[in-house]
Amino acid sequence: MNSDEEEERQPERLPISRRPEWADVTPIPQNDGPNPLVPIAYKEDFRETMDYFRAVYRADERSPRALELTKEAILLNPGNYTVWHFRRQILEVLNADLHDELAFVGRIAKSNSKNYQIWHHRRWVAEKLGTDASNKELEFTKKILALDAKNYHAWSHRQWVLTALGGWEDELDYCKKLLEEDIFNNSAWNQRHFVISRSPLHGGLRVMRDSEVSYTVEAILTNPENESPWRYLRGLYLDDTESWINDPRISSVCLKVLSTKSNYVFALSTLLDLICHGFQPSDEFREAIYALHASESEPLDSDLGKAICHVLKYIDPMRANYWLWRKSKLPLRAVSSQ
């Protein structure tokens, strides 16, 4: 357990049974049946808190003291979705200050940033607060992402905030900054794709494509072994395969990487996809691919698609069967698409 939480837990905790405000409530012990399986040895304070929680939950008591009790229960076990759910019902009835609630969730989230419940709760609170919460939520996820730049829940929450509450203005810069820190951060690439295709400020994928291709090509040439920009590059043409095939920048980045003769798996794989979709490679491509294979005794197939699969099978043995399979898919396509 994290030290933050230990602090919250107040070492001199007074048992609920000795608190006057709870004197009228009879705690309900957990019923695991006659033969409890997978028994869990609970700590006493946890057991007691849950026994009282069951009592207020069963009585559907939506009161300030019940709200306080859910807080205690959550601090002891932030993964209990039943407690969170009941807390939301109480918050609603009491018309509680939701900014306080955000602060409370924020404290817990720092040590439990991979807990579905916390993020779901946070989304609920932020939704109630509306567009005012946008900035706060973007800052909050930024803090979590500073600790773990690939935290799946934080990214999902951030995307929800942008979509539901707005705040797109700085998002592309934020992606840029994260990618400057770590160009291999695929979550940041994914977010970039999210921004350029969904932000109302940028005009959509087609409008952004030109500048994005330049950015991505540069990233590829700096680290051709980095899969993220290669997939991103393809993602820029999701709705428009024709332009993807015909944009000379796509085939030429493949050619450039091939000519370096190192880290060219993604270049070959992209070229193969292009050819499968009808791209007509010039002799330059043929020469570059044959040059990769120069030292091998076995001659390459004159069908460039097959030749690429052959080279890939050789240099990428982990996926040898995949390249064989791709090769087996080629002839049919050649007949149908040309």
Binding site: Y152, W155, S156, Q159, W160, T163, N186, S187, N190, H193, F194, R198, R231, Y232, R234, G235, L238
Partner: peptide, 16 residues
């Protein structure tokens, strides 16, 4: 299903 080819938990998230 994302631009990468895999599927994400919610629309827009990363393939996982």
């Amino acid at each position: 299903q994302t631009y990468e080819g895999g599927i994400s938990g919610e629309p827009g998230s990363e393939a996982h």
